[in-house]
């Protein structure tokens, strides 16, 4: 399966060109010389935390991570301490930090469009203002996937209530919307269905308020509806 060289410049097998093992290195910094879009693509495959840490490498890297089109706010470190705290305690202690984290990232984020915006933390209606602002942000960046997962053990009486949007929840980009442990009213879903013509997946879990939902829209592309 070797490449079939026609020229006479080299007879070595292609595999021989690649020294097994180490990561080149040398003096020339090929990684930093890659074009921005390729570096952003590479960073898009990391967790948000890993991608953002590259800012410390050198000035070339300082702002690059702010262009990744995936904002996945996974607070994995918090789940590790979950065993030691009740859900309420956890919310009290960790939620303000989480909110501050999300706020600071979206404040400095520069990608004009988003493939994914994901919130995964035990938040409830006490954080309504922040959550609603994040959703507005996601819509303003034409997010294709929007996920709010507030964890099932949050007291349902305290669920964040998905707003009945007026203007900004109109999106030609939104393809998937996933809401867990969020109060979602019929009217909000109906509004989304009517105003997000590209929506293909709608997933609502642990919401107990549907009574008389009307699934309709002028050009529904919906492929999966899971309520």
């Amino acid at each position: 399966m070797d490449a079939n060289r026609v020229g006479t410049h080299s007879n070595s097998k292609p595999e021989m060109c690649d020294k097994a093992g180490y990561l080149g290195g040398k003096d020339d910094d090929r990684l930093s010389k890659l074009p921005d879009d390729i570096l952003v693509d590479i960073m898009s495959r990391m967790s948000l935390k890993e991608a953002a840490r590259t800012s410390v490498l050198s000035s070339r890297w300082k702002h690059l991570w702010k262009y990744i089109p995936f904002l996945k706010f996974d607070a994995d470190n918090v789940y590790k301490i979950m065993d030691h705290h009740s859900a309420d305690e956890l919310i009290e202690i960790e939620a303000p930090k989480y909110v501050e984290w999300v706020n600071s990232v979206i404040q400095s984020h520069k990608s004009p469009t988003l493939k994914q915006f994901k919130i995964h933390f035990h938040l409830d209606r006490r954080h309504t203002d922040a959550i609603t602002r994040w959703i507005e942000f996601a819509f303003s960046r034409q997010a294709e996937r929007l996920e709010l997962n507030h964890e099932s053990f949050v007291n349902p009486k305290r669920y964040y209530c998905f707003p009945r949007f007026h203007s900004f929840a109109t999106s030609n980009s939104l393809k998937a919307l996933s809401l867990k442990s969020v109060h979602v009213r019929d009217a909000a879903v109906e509004f989304i269905l009517r105003n997000c013509p590209r929506l293909e997946e709608l997933f609502v879990r642990y919401s107990h308020n549907f009574s008389n939902l009307e699934v309709c829209g002028s050009s529904l592309k919906l492929k999966r509806l899971d309520l």
Partner: peptide
Amino acid sequence: AQVMEKKSVGWVRRKFGI
């Protein structure tokens, strides 16, 4: 991405000559 992940800043700088 996999090579860079979970590594310290110093490690990445050294390995990639940054």
